[in-house]
């Protein structure tokens, strides 16, 4: 599998404070890569380093097979659409004038701009000044600016901020369809559910370090879900010396892998414990994430 973005030991430190620490990112071509992490975990700084808006303290970035740094940035810029931190836009100008600025800076055609505007469904608002836009409309304009150049790689930092649920769904569908067309999309979000529903590969950042990178399936394998044991006689299970928490269904047991589960079943049968049900808890991505980030959560 070829990678559109690779980093080797990517690090950013401000004085003695390291905000991004030794990242080895691998973003496969044509996927939606969900970049997750609590606020302040270093996502935006990492994305800025990928775009060479911020210089790494250590490490290398390679984008589309070429080194990305302040010398090569302008050569790669035409191939990369981005929206970092907050949507850009000149408030005293209309949406149309803002897109004209992008068209002129990038040497695009009117058709490319119109297609990008149509894609984010902003056509009816292009003659309003951007200062009168809602946050959601600004976000759409920012995405249109990133899309207009028809990029091979899209790097979007929290692109659904400020959008209503219908808008979020639209952007999610848009990003998935772009990936289907071969565009690689790297998207950060604080809404885990949103990333869960569009990303095929995930990278999870905690305190500046990459604590997981892989597919959704691999992520769930990394964190073993709890077992729920439904029994009318939970005391007898606890008497076997098992560590479990009582719930209204019976008992909840943590950290038992496949072999340990098989051993548990053998012991329950051996001691003739009545079992009405034994199953793994379905876990949300958020629960897995909380496990990996040490309950640091997203706030």
């Amino acid at each position: 599998m070829s990678h559109v973005i690779t980093t080797e030991g990517l690090t950013k430190a401000y004085g003695s404070r390291t905000v991004v620490d030794s990242l080895d990112l691998r973003v496969p071509e044509g996927c939606v890569y969900g970049f997750l992490g609590p606020n302040g975990s270093g996502k935006s700084t990492t994305m800025k380093m990928l775009l060479s808006l911020v210089r790494p303290s250590r490490g290398e970035v390679s984008v589309l097979g070429r080194p990305m740094n302040h010398r090569t940035r302008h050569e790669l810029a035409a191939l990369i659409g981005s929206l970092i931190e907050a949507p850009p836009g000149y408030g005293h100008l209309t949406g149309r004038e803002n897109m004209a600025i992008v068209r002129r800076m990038l040497g695009l055609t009117e058709r490319q701009v119109e297609r990008a505007v149509a894609t984010v469904r902003l056509r009816d608002h292009m003659d309003k000044p951007v200062r009168a836009y809602s946050l959601g409309m600004k976000q759409r304009l920012g995405i249109a600016m990133a899309l207009a150049r028809e990029p091979r790689l899209l790097i979007l930092d929290e692109p659904t901020n400020g959008l209503d649920p219908a808008g979020i769904e639209e952007i999610r569908d848009l990003l998935k369809s772009l990936a289907d067309e071969g565009v690689t999309v790297m998207v950060s979000s604080h809404l885990l559910d949103e990333v869960d529903r569009m990303a095929s590969v995930l990278g999870i950042l905690g305190r500046g370090r990459l604590i997981f990178q892989g597919t959704r399936g691999e992520l769930f394998d990394r964190s073993t879900p709890d077992l729920v044991l439904e029994t009318p006689e939970p005391e007898r299970v606890l008497d076997l010396g098992l560590s479990a928490v009582r719930t209204h269904e019976g008992l909840r047991l943590s950290g038992l892998g496949e072999d340990e589960t098989a051993d548990l079943v053998r012991r329950l049968v051996h001691h003739d414990v009545p079992v009405h049900g034994l199953y793994r808890v379905r876990r949300s991505l958020e629960e897995v994430f909380m496990d990996l980030t040490g309950r640091e959560g997203l706030s």
């Binding site: 800025k48 775009l51 808006l53 940035r73 302008h74 050569e75 810029a77 035409a78 990369i80 981005s82 970092i84 931190e85 907050a86 949507p87 850009p88 836009g89 000149y90 408030g91 992008v102 800076m105 990038l106 040497g107 600016m145």
Partner: peptide, 18 residues
């Protein structure tokens, strides 16, 4: 100020222009 506001500098620096 137009560039410092609203993160327009990110936009400016993400163009192919030197």
């Amino acid at each position: 100020r137009m560039e410092h506001r609203g993160h327009n500098r990110n936009l400016l620096m993400s163009t192919p222009a030197r």
